[in-house]
């Protein structure tokens, strides 16, 4: 269900993070994207109040991966009633860390000339997959052996109509790297790695059976 560009990184469609009725007329919809190695919060601010809005600023609560605004929220002109503006806020990953539940939850405070408002949103963990996340094959095999069985989680991905090569190249656009592919009993087994911004490596096996739209992923 991706709306991402075919070879680019996956970015979900914008959703409403802050409804106007909860924020004295300020509506914020947004999404997260990773563009050329930069994590961005992309937002549409809509003024559904009767007076102009100015003096915007944004702050995050500490979060699992230290996401923090890399600079101020750039709203350079007042936002009039019924007006919308688009803002892209670059994020750094060196902010204060606190484990959140769920892990990718982000608590945000936005202020304007009217008040301070709070909302939560969840970012796709793939925002944190760095460009140099392709593990050496030898290291992958050794690491795979070292990981205790209890650390493995398995998921079904339903209704995916790509063959394993197409899936592999699409995933690579989001910095999920295929290190090896083997076919056993008609099943493609893809061994993949990714590295999070905090240096943690994730190893995965993706199983794709020809004609079966359900994949199995083990991480």
């Amino acid at each position: 269900g991706s709306v991402g560009m075919p070879m680019g990184a996956y970015s979900p469609p914008k959703s409403i993070w802050l409804p106007a009725m909860k924020a004295k007329g300020l509506e914020i919809s947004g999404t997260f994207a990773r563009r050329a190695g930069v994590i961005q919060m992309e937002m549409t601010l809509t003024n559904k109040a009767m007076s102009i809005m100015t003096d915007f600023a944004i702050q995050f609560n500490r979060n699992s991966f230290g996401l923090a605004p890399a600079g101020p929220l750039q709203v350079l002109t007042p936002v009039g009633p019924n007006q919308s503006i688009e803002v892209a806020l670059p994020l750094s990953t060196v902010g204060p860390v606190m484990k959140m539940e769920p892990l990718t939850n982000l608590q945000v405070a936005v202020k304007n000339n009217i008040d301070v408002f709070y909302f939560s949103s969840q970012y796709p963990i793939s925002m944190l997959f760095v460009e140099d996340g392709k593990m050496e094959r030898q290291v992958f095999l050794a690491t795979w052996k070292d990981i205790p069985n209890d650390n493995e989680a398995q998921f079904q991905i339903k209704d995916c109509h790509l063959n394993s090569d197409a899936a592999s190249s699409k995933l690579q656009g989001s910095n999920v790297f295929t290190i090896a592919k083997r076919t056993v009993e008609g099943q493609d087994m893809l061994y993949q790695s990714m590295k999070l911004t905090n240096g943690i490596w994730v190893l995965a096996e993706l199983r794709v059976q020809a004609g079966n739209p359900n994949y199995t992923v083990s991480t």
């Binding site: 094959r137 095999l141 083997r182 056993v184 087994m189």
Partner: peptide, 20 residues
């Protein structure tokens, strides 16, 4: 030789995961 060894190791891994 190392590359051959790694190729084989991945084949063994895939095999063992399919038929544990």
């Amino acid at each position: 030789e190392l590359e051959d060894g790694l190729d084989e190791a991945f084949s063994r891994l895939a095999e063992s995961r399919t038929n544990p």
